[in-house]
Design a protein around this nucleic acid. Structure first.
Lengths: 308, 308
DNA sequence: GCCGATCATAACGTCCGGTTATCGCACCGC
DNA sequence: GCGGTGCGATAACCGGACGTTATGATCGGC
């Protein structure tokens, strides 16, 4: 029945003292004010202004509206400013979920970039392997996921991925990690068949799956001596000479490489790293900005890789 | 940019959990909500809802709007309720100004009526002779004036009375007041010429003007021995035998009449009592109600008069 | 695998709320 | 007094916001 525009008009009249002045102060023409007041008067059923000669003055009811206008307009402005801050990246929040090995360098670099550009945007970051992160995305508990897929597979297996927006970030080459005294340590590239008899250290379940699948391609079934989700432990075990392992470049870059030799495979194997979100969340500025920061972080890292 | 309707929609979505439910809760159809949200999203420049399968959930910005909606809508409701109370006579104020002799019975009776009907309406009452009350009305310091005019004259002399709304309330007959032992006390009506030699007690300036004018019509110039604004004093002086006076019925009714004889004049003289307000103020419910109460009070008093 | 529920979209109508143009009128200065 | 100036009211008009109905696309459950 009564709306913010009406209140704004009443307040302008109260402040300016005349319809004409109120009109110019609001950027309207005078008849607009005249009509607005008339509408308000017939809606409320009482006179709101008193025409005294050529001036107008508010009646009691008019004063009431003008008084409340301050409250309402302030609240409206506050709301508007708050969403404008979110839209303008002067505020806002993004919930990011990334798989563990990405948190070593890709994600921190991206978050540093984001923080530098938009210091007020707050990030809630948690780790999670692709299945969990996609589930969180679907459940609305997460805005943006960093996930990976080994070449030839999809990010979410079994998930209907067309509900998501998937942006490729970078490729991560998988290498064979071994102790320096390993027979293959001297080669520049390693053929998997040449290490078919070694003991293996396996990483996360999906990584183990990948290892098995690659080995199968090379005609053997790997002898997995140790299994751990923790890649620092994987490297430690390799360093201690307990076996060899397939380790993505991303991990090697972040960890100590002393006592480890890592060589590309022949044929090469890579995993694709993606940022995943939804159509809607992509339109949330903080999410878009984070996505962009991730892409930049990925690009800059690619250069580093090339330099290596 | 952002208005109450938008906030209402966001709040409904937050409360109901779906567009459809929000629509029915607001009495709209579902597409109306869809479009409203879309408009809001493109105005604010950020996603406000997240479509998850068949349900929707608010984004951070959406939550912000829904949260502020409570404040804004409450303030709007409060404003609306407050003017509705004024319009519905559950609140409000009327500033009444009446000439002194009306405050004896006409006005009190009207105010009692008003109070009985609309106990919450507050009345600010002050006394003032017509010139002042009309000036107050014009200055916006008063909403309703009770004024009088002797027959053949206007309420405001020199005032542009078409700026006002003038409603006749009642006629007030002017009588000659004299002590019981006065030679004319035995007559049922008195001819002014018969008291041309008496000493006169005059009331307010306008009343004195009326006396002079009436006497002039009867061919004499009155010998005014005393002059006072206070009609109680006038009657006292008459009672004490210091002269005769022209006294309106309204006064006689309110004062002690002991020791006084009051007789109609021949030809009769009356003053007209009016309620005066402005076009705008007439549309203020409290003013209209007071006006009506005055009219009823006047009507009931006329009956009393007739009975006398 | 179909069905029901939900949101999106298209096409459309209406009315709100602005505009321009003009009038009426109060005040003011000659 | 009498015209000019400024303000509010009114009329006519117009566009867009914001509803509607009808229909399509999808998700999720039985």
């Amino acid at each position: 029945m009564i709306d913010a525009a009406g209140l704004r008009v009443m307040k302008a009249i109260a402040d300016e003292g005349s319809f004409t002045a109120a009109a110019t102060s609001l950027g309207f023409t005078q008849p607009a004010i005249s009509q607005m007041v008339r509408r308000l008067e017939q809606r409320t059923g009482t006179a709101l202004v008193e025409r005294l000669g050529r001036n107008v003055r508010l009646t009691e009811a008019g004063e009431v509206l003008a008084r409340h206008a301050v409250t309402v307009l302030a609240a409206l402005d506050a709301a508007e400013e708050e969403v404008a801050a979110i839209a303008g990246l002067r505020s806002g929040r993004v919930r990011l979920m990334a798989f563990p090995s990405s948190s070593a360098s890709l994600v921190p670099k991206a978050l540093a970039l984001l923080k530098r550009r938009f210091p007020e945007v707050s990030v809630r970051f948690s780790e999670g392997e692709p299945p969990e992160s996609l589930a969180a995305l679907r459940a609305g508990d997460c805005d943006l996921a960093v996930a990976f897929a080994y070449e030839g597979t999809d990010v979410g297996r079994g998930e209907d991925l067309d509900a998501f927006v998937i942006r490729p970030l970078m490729e991560d080459e998988v290498r064979l990690a071994m102790p320096p005294d390993h027979p293959q340590a001297g080669q520049s590239v390693v053929n998997l068949a040449d290490v078919s008899q070694d003991s293996w250290i396996a990483g996360c379940p999906r990584c183990r799956g990948h290892l098995v699948s690659l080995a199968q391609g090379a005609g053997f079934s790997p002898n997995v001596a140790f299994e751990t989700e923790d890649y620092v432990a994987v490297l430690g075990l390799v360093r201690a000479g307990l076996g060899v392992a397939l380790v993505p470049d991303l991990i090697l870059e972040a960890a100590h490489e002393d006592g480890i030799v890592a060589r590309p495979l022949m044929p090469p194997s890579r995993r694709q790293i993606h940022a995943v979100t939804t159509e809607d969340l992509q339109r949330v500025p903080a999410v878009a900005a984070t996505l962009e920061a991730l892409e930049e972080s990925a690009r800059s890292r690619t250069k580093t890789l090339v330099r290596r």
